[in-house]
Amino acid sequence: MTKGLTALAGALLALTLTGCAQPPVTTTSSAVEPDAPAGPSFKACLLTDAGSASAGSPAQQAIDGLDRTQRELAIETDSVTADSSADYPRVLQSLVDAQCSIVVALGSGMANSVEAAAKTNPGVQFALIDAIPNSAPANLRPVLFSVQESSFLAGYAAAARSTSGKVGVFGALNVPAVTIYMDGFVQGVGYFNQAKGAQVQALGWKVDAQDGTFVRSDSAPFSDTAAGRTAAESLTAQGADVIVAVAGDSGQGALQLASEDSGLKVI
């Protein structure tokens, strides 16, 4: 299941307009004339991981949002990729050196590097999508989405469709950007039980312990179909007949399993 960050373009637009100071008390919206002259020189830049921009992925949606920013605000933009986590500091500094006014980074894995870059370069604005740094200097803004609300609905829907009385969820990695979905799923199942007087069991995630079922792949937890199938099989073996996959392309493994088992449903 890929993340639906459809609000990301708007977030990038807002960040471009307001910078990374404290969020404004009020917000307004207005049409942007296509031929409006550009304001003061401004350059918005994006950092993603190499190979992460598959169709519908958060990285691709971020790139699309950056493109929209360029069209609608008539500003300069740039998008670069890092080959590995070890490359983050160098690439971040290269964007600073390229006179980027704001640098947007995507994902919890970049949090420490972005925090360090922001502290080293107080004159540049930074935004960290989908993650919270250990500390945020004035020029660094975390950008988060209430994704647990969508997975809450998925949990409710899963419980409503289950005939075995057991539903399951698995994730790609035990990181906040993934587990917040799993929290919402379990809470949605719990609300269904409360509303309907049911006793559907949620497998694959324990909210209190923050522990559960994950894709077992050392190299590609978000794109290992076989490992995703194995994670789904571990839930069906416990009786789950509806499964939610929070694992990117690894979730395709759960779909493969469902194509062979007419009693299994996958979200």
Rank of each mutant, 00 (worst) to 15 (best):
G4A: 13
A9K: 12
L17S: 06
L17K: 07
T18F: 09
T18N: 15
A21P: 06
Q22Y: 08
P23W: 13
S30W: 13
A31E: 15
P34H: 14
A36V: 13
F42W: 04
K43N: 05
L47C: 06
Q60R: 11
Q61S: 08
A62W: 08
A62Y: 10
I63L: 14
L66D: 04
D67N: 09
R71C: 00
E76Y: 07
D78S: 15
S85P: 07
R90G: 10
V91Q: 15
Q99S: 14
G107N: 11
S108N: 12
G109M: 10
N112S: 14
V114D: 00
T120V: 00
N121K: 00
V124G: 02
I129E: 10
S135V: 13
S135K: 14
A136N: 13
P137L: 09
N139I: 11
F145E: 08
S146N: 12
S146A: 13
G155Y: 02
A158P: 01
S162A: 08
S162H: 01
S162Y: 01
K166I: 07
V169E: 10
F170A: 07
A177Y: 06
G184P: 12
G188D: 11
V189E: 13
G190I: 00
G190L: 05
Y191W: 11
Q194T: 05
Q199V: 04
Q199Y: 02
Q201R: 08
G204W: 13
K206Q: 14
D208E: 11
D211L: 02
G212M: 06
T213S: 07
F214Y: 11
V215C: 05
V215T: 03
S217P: 05
D224T: 01
A226Q: 09
A226F: 01
G228I: 04
A232V: 09
L235W: 09
A237C: 09
A237V: 10
A240F: 09
A240Y: 11
V246K: 03
A247F: 03
G251V: 03
A254Q: 05
L255I: 15
Q256D: 15
G263R: 07
K265L: 13
